[in-house]
Design a protein around this nucleic acid. Structure first.
Lengths: 112, 112
DNA sequence: TTTTAAAGAACTATATATGGATCAAAAATA
DNA sequence: TATTTTTGATCCATATATAGTTCTTTAAAA
């Protein structure tokens, strides 16, 4: 791991991460929670919550989702049950797909 | 940083992260991309993509979103433009909210 | 069935994110 | 305005996620 070129992100990814952060901050403020309170509840440091709310792309996704969930932000617009079901369904569908993708000589032409 | 108690995650967060991973794998397979190909395009290692698809909660959120975007998974059910606009709108709304939350003696009773 | 590429699973070195502390600036209430 | 809490920012030590490699297992396709 000699050099470590800083990772680059597409605009879409950057916007998405930043949006989540902004939504968390918005929800936290509306619910009158201090940064410390939310951080404690989420089991993360205040500094990390700062980065999350700022939309830093290198934060643990688990920590981000945890903070989001606490202030009531639904990913996938689905509650607990719906999310779990979606997950089960996706797992099943995944079981039916090929286990590995075979790259056969010429790359397929796709839909272009 | 002496001890480092392993972070815990709510079921919702775990399911959400796992679902994203499963969706990425599903989309990748359907698009006939090998793990190496997607990893290369996303600028991450193959090992990391493995963890992402497995739903490991400690992956960088930026890397996860990047991989998701490449295989066409829309977070927030919004495309580039809609997402950017949503972000702008949230920033504006945020600017109107109080900059800090004052915890005045007795914690508010909220909606419980 | 045979072939061979893809995926899974370790392992290591290292870059780095994190927790925790501190300090200053900002801003909410009294 | 005065007071006091919250937030922003920085710094450091350390835990740890990551890239990269290697080896094994699996499973497409010939």
């Amino acid at each position: 791991m000699p050099k470590s070129i800083p990772r680059t992100y597409s605009r879409y990814s950057r916007d998405a991460v930043e949006l989540i952060g902004a939504l968390i901050r918005e929800a936290r403020t509306e619910r009158k929670l201090t940064a410390r309170e939310l951080a404690d509840r989420a089991g993360i440091s205040r500094g990390m919550l700062q980065r999350i709310e700022k939309g830093h792309p290198k934060c643990e996704i688990g920590a981000v989702f945890e903070a989001a969930a606490i202030v009531g932000i639904q990913l996938f617009e689905a509650d607990d049950r719906a999310l779990a079901q979606h997950l089960r369904h996706t797992r099943e569908k995944l079981a039916l797909l090929p286990k590995s993708v075979r790259r056969t000589s010429k790359p397929v032409h796709d839909e272009f």
